[in-house]
Nucleic acid binder design. Structure first.
Length: 1075
RNA sequence: GGGAACGUAGCUCAGAGGGAGAGCGCCAGACUUACAUUCUGGAGAUCGCAGGUUCAAAUCCUGCCGUUCCCACCA
C-alpha cells in the first residue's frame, strides 16, 4: 500500500500535476476521449502583456477553469483558448517608463524602429511570465491554440475588419473634437476618460469693459478661443442680446464673440451666460455646429498654447497661461469674483493626466449609420447601436447578473462615434495609405451616352454595346456643352460605347483608352435587368467583379494620374460603375446598396483630386503611397477576440474574408459559450465584442456573459500600489496552494459582487483541502482493496442509506447550481457534505461498521464509491488536490476526463420517502448524540469516562425508524457510553434533555455537581418554551390564520403546539424532581 | 444631476413570505489509532431606522439614514 503523507503539500505536487495534464493532451478538444458532439468554448480574456498576473487574472482563471472542467466532465468538446493582448497604450507607456528610468531617454530619442523593438522584446518576456502564471493557476486551456492580438493572423483579421467597416461606410475619417492626452500624446475614446474630484477655482469675469454679459469658467485660458456666448433663449435678462456680435481682445488679438441662444444653457448656473469654446469642449463644439460658429484651436497637442492664443500666450503650458490671463483680467478690472469650488477633472485612465478636448482629424466608427450587410441578420438597415441593443434585448446574449443589462443599455444610449485612431507606435498600424497630388488634378467625369443595353434595361458590363440614336444625340449635346472647356488629356474606358462617346465629344483630341475605366463586370448577371442585378451589388457578381475590385482598378488609374499628370485638367469618359467608384474614392461614399443602385447622370461631374486614400490588406500598387502613421485603439482588435482566435492561421490560403471564414474549422466553437470577465470592462470590451462580432460574423460572440466582481482587500478597498494593499496571488499560492486560493475567490460571493481576499480566508480553505486529503487518506489506507468500487453500492445500515442519499442530493444540487452559474452555493453545499456529513458523521460511524465483519465489505464499498464521486464533484473547484488523490486511487487514468455523475432524477414522491425514512430518522440519531455530548459537557463528565443513558421515546415506537440496534452500538462508539437503553421513566439520579419529536435523553450520574446551575438552565428553557407556546396559541386562536393560511401550515403549527406542550410538561416534571 | 446595488452575530457572507444560518474570530474542554491545517461543547443578532401590505415580514411596498458603484457633467 502506498504511503500517503499526513498533510497535503500543494507546493510539491501542483507543478507535476499540471505537467501531467498538459502532456496528456486533454486541454486540446481534439484529443478528448469518447464521443463528444456538444461544443463548449470560452475565449480567455487575454491578459495584457505588461508584467505579471494579479488577483484580477487569478479570479477570472479560477472561474473559467471551473466552468471548463465542469463541462469537460459533462462530456462536451471543450475548448478554452488562451492568449495575450498587446494592450497598446499600456504597454508602450510601461516601456517608456522603464526606458526613462534606466536610460533617461524618451521614445523619440530612440526612434520608432529601435523603440518598437524594445516594446516587442518586453511584450515577449511578459507573455512568457504571464503564461507560466496562468499555468500556476491550473488553467486547463489549450496552449496549442494560444494567440496574441499582434500575431500575424490576428493582424490580418484586424485589417479585414477595418476594411469591411470602411467599405460599409461605418469607419470614416473626420475632423472632430477628440479626447487628447498630452502625456500619452494620443487620442482616447470616451470610455478611456475618467473623472476625478478636485478643488478648482470658478472665475467670473467680463471679456471687456463694455461687454454686456458676465461669464464664468474654471478654465480661463480656453477663453482665448471663445467665439460665442450662449444664453438660454428664455432668459429675460439676456434675450435682447441674442444675435449681436462683439469684438474683444483679451490677448489673442481681435476676437469676435457672437451672442447665441441655446436651450441647453442652465439659467441658474453661474451667471447664466456661457462662454463658448468650440475647439476645447465637446458640448461647445456641438453648439458651434448648430450655430455655425468658427473654431479656434488655442491649445496644442503638447498641452501648450498655440499661436492663435496670441503672442503673449503662445508656447505657455495651459496652467501658466491660466495664471497669466487671470492676472491680466484682474489688472484690467474685468475679474468680478473668484470662488473655490469642487469640480471634476477629466483625466486619462492610463496615466492620470488631464485630458484636453481638442479638434483633430481622426478615424471614427459611426454608431448611428444604418447599414445593410449580406448574410447578416443583425445588420438589415440597422445601426451598430441598434444591433448591439437588439442582441441583449432579445436575450440572445444573457448577462449574469442581469442588472448589468441596464448599464449596458444606458451606455449605448449615450454612445457617440468611437474614435479608433491612436497616435502611439505600438499596435496595429491603420491599414490606410495616402497619396497626395501636390498641385491637384481637376477631373471631369462623363458617362457614356445611352446604349442599347441601357435602353433595354440590360447590363452589358464588359460586353460590346453600341450607343442608341438617343445616346449619340446626348453625346453631341455634351460636345457643344464642353466646347469651351480646355482639357489637357482625355481618357476613356476601352469599351466601345465609351470610346464612341469620347470620340463624339472630343473629335480632335487623342483618346487614351484604359481598361481600368471599364464598367463593372457583371459576370453571370450580364444581360440581366437592373432589378435582378441589385441583390448582388453589395456582395459582387458571380463570375464577375465586385465594386471593391472596380475601386481597386480605378484607384490604380488615379495613382498613375498623380504620377504623370499632376496639375493638369483631365476628362474621363466611362460608365456608371466608373462613377460609383469615383464617388467612393473621391467623395467618401460607401459600398452600401443605396449608393450602388444609383446610376450616374449623363451630366458631367467635376472632382478635385488632391489626395487618394487606399484602404486594404496590403500596400497599394505604385509609388508615392504613405501609410497612416497612427495605430488602432487596442479595443478594436480585442473586440474581434472570440472569432479572430479561431480563424485558420494559414490566412494566405484564402482570397477573401468569406473564404477564410468558411475554411476555418475551429469556428465550430463560435459563438463561444460563455464570456467570463470582470464587470469593469463591460463597456470597454464586452460591448465592443458584441459590436464587432455581429458586424463581422453575423453571429453573437458568446451566449452568456458572466461578470464577476472585483477583488478587494479585507476592508473592501480597491487594491492599489499606493495603498500598499496589493495581494499577489502567487504569494498566496506559495503559502496555501492554488486550490485554496481558487476556492477562496469563488466561495462567499455572487455574480457581480466584489470579493474580499485576505490570508485568513485562503487559510481556511487550505484547511479544507487538507481535510479532503485526510478523508481520502483514511479511506485509501483502511480499505483493503481500493480497486473494488461498486457500480451501485448496497446500503446495510441507516447510516449507509443516509450518506448515499445525501450524496445523491448534493450531486443534484451542485449540478443545478453549476448549470445556473451559482458557483458559491455549489461549493458551500459540497463543503457541507464533505465535512459535516461525510467526515463528521459517516466516517466516524464507518469506523465502527468496519469492525463488524458483516458490515465491513459493504462499508468499504460505500466509502470508495462516495470518494470516487466526491472527487469528481470537487474537481472543477480544486483540480490539483482531487487529481492527486485520484492518482493514489486510480493511477491509470486522469480525473480531469472522467464522467460527471448522472443526476439521479428524484421525484417529489421519492424525495418524501427518503426524507421520512432516511433523513429524518438520521437527524434524530444526530440529535440524540449531540444532546448526549451536550449533557456530558454541561455536567463536566470526563471525556474518558463512560456513562449509562436512558432514552424515553416521545411516542411509542418513535425510535423504530432509526433502527435502535444499530444506533445503540454506534452511539457507544460516538459518545463514550456504557449502555444505551430505552425506558419509560426517568431514572433516579439522572439529568436529561427533552428533544422535540424524539424523546427525553437521560444521563445517569453518580453525583450531581451543580444542582443550582441545572435548575437555572431548566427554568430558562421552560421560559422560552412557554413563550413559544404563547405565540403558537395566539396564532392558532386567530380565525384569520385558520381561514387564510394554507392547511399544511396550520397543521404544522398545531403539531408544534402539542409538541411544545409535551415538552413543557416534561421539563416541569424535571424541575420538580430537583425540589 | 440621473441610475443601481447593498446595510443580517465582532468580521466575511448565505437566506427572499411561515419558529434567525454558515465560515472565521471568541470562550470552555480534548493529543479520540485520517487529519491539532483536528475534534467536542458554548456564548454571541430588536435582520440599518420608521411606516405600510398580509392571518403571518429579515424576506413584499414606501420614506428616511448610511455605505458603495456606474453614468452624465459643472460652462
Amino acid at each position: 500500500m502506498k504511503e500517503i503523507p499526513k498533510t497535503y503539500k500543494p507546493q510539491e505536487v501542483e507543478d507535476k500535476i499540471y505537467q501531467t495534464w498538459e502532456k496528456s493532451g486533454y486541454f486540446n478538444p481534439d484529443n478528448l476521449p469518447g464521443e463528444r458532439s456538444e461544443y463548449f468554448s470560452i475565449a480567455m480574456p487575454p491578459p495584457n502583456c505588461t508584467g505579471t498576473l494579479h488577483t484580477g487574472h487569478a479570479i477570472m482563471l479560477a472561474y473559467q477553469d471551473l466552468i471548463m472542467r465542469y463541462n469537460r466532465l459533462l462530456g462536451k468538446k471543450t475548448l478554452w483558448l488562451p492568449g495575450t493582448d498587446h494592450a497598446a497604450i499600456a504597454t508602450q507607456a510601461k516601456v517608456e517608463k522603464i526606458l526613462y528610468k534606466e536610460e533617461k531617454k524618451t521614445r523619440h530619442d530612440l526612434g520608432k524602429g529601435k523603440f518598437l523593438q524594445k516594446v516587442v522584446d518586453y511584450a515577449e518576456e511578459s507573455k512568457n511570465t504571464i503564461n507560466n502564471q496562468v499555468r500556476k493557476m491550473g488553467s486547463s486551456c489549450d496552449w496549442s491554440r494560444e494567440r496574441y492580438t499582434l500575431d500575424e493572423g490576428l493582424s490580418q483579421v484586424v485589417k479585414h475588419a477595418f476594411l469591411k467597416m470602411y467599405e460599409a461606410g461605418v469607419i470614416y475619417r473626420g475632423d472632430r473634437i477628440v479626447n487628447w492626452c498630452p502625456h500619452c500624446m494620443s487620442t482616447l475614446s470616451d470610455d478611456e476618460v475618467e473623472y476625478q474630484a478636485a478643488k478648482g477655482k470658478f472665475y467670473t469675469f467680463k471679456y471687456a469693459k463694455d461687454f454686456p454679459l458676465l461669464i464664468s469658467t474654471t478654465r480661463p485660458e480656453t477663453k482665448l478661443g471663445d467665439t460665442a456666448v450662449a444664453v438660454n433663449p428664455k432668459d429675460k435678462r439676456y434675450q435682447k442680446y441674442i444675435g449681436q456680435e462683439f469684438t474683444i481682445d483679451i490677448g489673442a488679438g481681435q476676437q469676435k464673440i457672437k451672442i447665441i441662444g441655446d436651450d441647453s444653457v442652465d439659467m441658474n448656473l453661474g451667471t447664466g451666460a456661457l462662454g463658448v469654446t468650440p475647439a476645447h469642449s465637446m458640448i461647445d463644439y456641438e453648439m458651434a455646429q448648430k450655430n455655425d460658429l468658427s473654431i479656434i484651436k488655442v491649445i496644442n497637442e503638447d498641452g501648450t498654447m498655440t499661436d492663435k492664443a496670441g503672442p503673449d500666450y503662445q508656447g505657455l503650458p495651459v496652467l501658466q497661461a491660466r495664471d497669466k490671463l487671470v492676472k491680466w483680467l484682474k489688472d484690467n478690472d474685468l475679474m468680478v469674483k473668484q470662488e473655490d469650488i469642487e469640480m471634476n477633472l477629466t483625466v486619462c485612465y492610463r496615466c492620470g493626466n488631464t485630458v484636453e478636448p481638442l479638434p483633430s482629424k481622426q478615424w471614427f466608427i459611426d454608431v448611428n449609420k444604418k447599414i445593410t450587410l449580406k448574410d447578416n441578420k443583425y445588420f438589415q438597415n440597422k445601426s451598430i447601436k441598434e444591433a448591439a441593443l437588439g442582441v441583449i434585448k432579445d436575450r440572445e446574449i444573457k448577462i449574469i447578473p442581469q442588472k448589468f443589462e441596464q448599464d449596458y443599455f444606458r451606455w449605448l444610449d449615450n454612445l457617440r462615434d468611437w474614435c479608433i485612431s491612436r497616435q502611439i507606435w505600438f499596435g496595429h498600424q491603420i491599414p490606410v495609405w495616402y497619396k497626395k497630388a501636390d498641385k491637384g488634378i481637376n477631373i471631369t467625369f462623363i458617362r457614356h451616352g445611352e446604349s442599347q443595353g441601357n435602353a433595354n434595361d440590360q447590363a452589358s458590363g464588359h460586353q460590346g454595346d453600341e450607343l442608341t440614336d438617343k445616346g449619340i444625340k446626348e453625346s453631341q449635346n455634351l460636345k457643344s456643352q464642353l466646347a469651351d472647356e480646355n482639357f489637357d488629356k482625355v481618357f476613356s474606358s476601352d469599351l466601345s460605347r465609351s470610346v464612341q462617346t469620347a470620340e463624339i465629344i472630343f473629335p480632335d483630341k487623342e483618346i487614351i483608352q484604359d481598361q481600368r475605366l471599364r464598367e463593372i463586370d457583371f459576370g453571370d448577371l450580364t444581360g440581366k435587368t437592373n432589378e435582378e442585378r441589385n441583390k448582388y451589388r453589395v456582395s459582387g457578381f458571380p463570375n464577375g467583379e465586385s465594386y471593391q475590385q472596380v475601386r481597386e482598378r480605378i484607384l490604380s488609374f488615379l495613382s498613375d494620374l498623380i504620377d504623370k499628370y499632376d496639375g493638369q485638367r483631365i476628362a474621363l469618359i466611362g460608365h456608371s460603375g466608373t462613377w460609383k467608384a469615383l464617388e467612393i474614392i473621391l467623395n467618401n461614399k460607401s459600398f452600401d446598396l443605396e449608393h450602388l443602385k444609383i446610376h450616374a447622370t449623363r451630366e458631367p461631374v467635376e472632382y478635385q483630386l488632391k489626395e487618394i486614400i487606399s484602404v486594404g490588406l496590403s500596400d497599394p500598387q505604385g509609388s508615392g503611397w504613405q501609410q497612416d502613421e497612427d495605430t488602432l485603439d487596442t479595443w478594436f482588435s480585442s473586440g474581434l477576440w472570440t472569432f479572430s482566435t479561431l480563424m485558420d492561421k494559414d490566412y494566405q490560403k484564402y482570397d477573401s474574408w468569406e473564404d477564410w471564414v468558411k475554411g476555418s474549422a475551429d469556428l465550430e466553437f463560435h459563438p463561444t459559450s460563455v464570456m467570463e470577465t470582470g464587470y469593469d470592462i463591460l463597456f470597454f470590451w464586452i460591448a465592443r465584442m458584441i459590436i464587432q462580432t455581429t458586424f463581422m460574423m453575423g453571429e453573437i460572440p458568446f451566449e452568456h456573459v458572466y461578470l464577476h466582481g472585483l477583488v478587494r482587500d479585507e476592508k473592501g478597498r480597491k487594491m492599489s500600489k499606493s495603498l500598499g494593499n496589493v495581494v499577489d496571488p502567487l504569494d498566496l499560492i506559495d503559502k496555501y496552494g492554488t486550490d485554496a486560493l481558487r476556492i477562496a475567490m469563488i466561495t462567499g460571493t455572487s455574480a457581480g459582487a466584489d470579493t474580499r481576499l485576505y490570508d485568513e480566508k485562503v487559510e481556511g480553505f487550505r484547511n479544507f483541502v487538507n481535510k479532503l486529503w485526510n478523508i481520502s487518506r483514511y479511506i485509501l489506507t483502511s480499505v483493503k482493496d481500493i480497486r473494488r468500487i461498486p457500480e451501485k453500492p448496497t446500503p446495510q445500515t441507516l447510516a449507509d442509506e443516509w450518506i448515499l442519499s445525501k450524496l445523491d442530493l448534493v450531486t443534484e444540487q451542485v449540478s443545478k447550481d453549476l448549470d445556473k452559474f451559482n458557483f458559491s452555493p455549489a461549493s458551500d453545499a459540497l463543503r457541507d457534505f464533505t465535512w459535516n456529513n461525510l467526515a463528521d458523521w459517516y466516517i466516524e460511524n464507518a469506523k465502527f461498521q468496519m469492525s463488524n465483519d458483516k458490515l465491513k465489505t459493504s462499508t468499504e464499498e460505500i466509502l470508495l464509491y462516495v470518494l470516487e464521486r466526491l472527487l469528481i464533484l470537487w474537481h472543477p473547484f480544486i483540480p490539483f488536490v482531487t487529481e492527486e488523490i485520484w492518482a493514489n486511487f486510480k493511477a491509470q487514468e486522469l480525473l480531469m476526463v472522467q464522467q460527471w455523475p448522472q443526476v439521479k432524477y428524484i421525484g417529489q414522491a421519492e424525495k418524501q420517502v427518503i426524507e421520512s425514512q432516511v433523513l429524518y430518522p438520521f437527524w434524530k440519531f444526530e440529535e440524540i448524540i449531540m444532546n448526549i455530548r451536550n449533557l456530558r459537557a454541561e455536567f463536566k463528565i470526563d471525556p474518558g469516562q463512560k456513562v449509562d443513558v436512558t432514552i424515553i421515546p416521545a411516542k411509542k415506537d418513535n425510535l423504530a425508524d432509526i433502527r435502535f440496534e444499530e444506533l445503540q452500538n454506534n452511539i457507544i462508539n460516538l459518545a463514550k457510553l456504557d449502555h444505551l437503553m430505552i425506558g419509560q421513566t426517568k431514572p433516579a439520579g439522572s439529568v436529561s434533555h427533552v428533544l422535540e419529536g424524539v424523546g427525553q435523553i437521560c444521563l445517569h450520574l453518580e453525583s450531581l455537581l451543580d444542582l443550582e446551575q441545572e435548575k437555572q438552565r431548566l427554568q430558562n428553557e421552560i421560559e422560552s418554551v412557554k413563550k413559544f407556546i404563547a405565540t403558537l396559541e395566539k396564532k392558532l386562536k386567530n380565525n384569520d390564520f385558520k381561514l387564510k393560511a394554507p392547511k399544511d401550515i396550520v397543521a404544522k403549527e398545531e403539531f408544534k403546539l402539542n409538541d411544545q406542550k409535551e415538552k413543557l410538561a416534561k421539563l416541569e416534571d424535571q424541575l420538580k424532581g430537583f425540589e
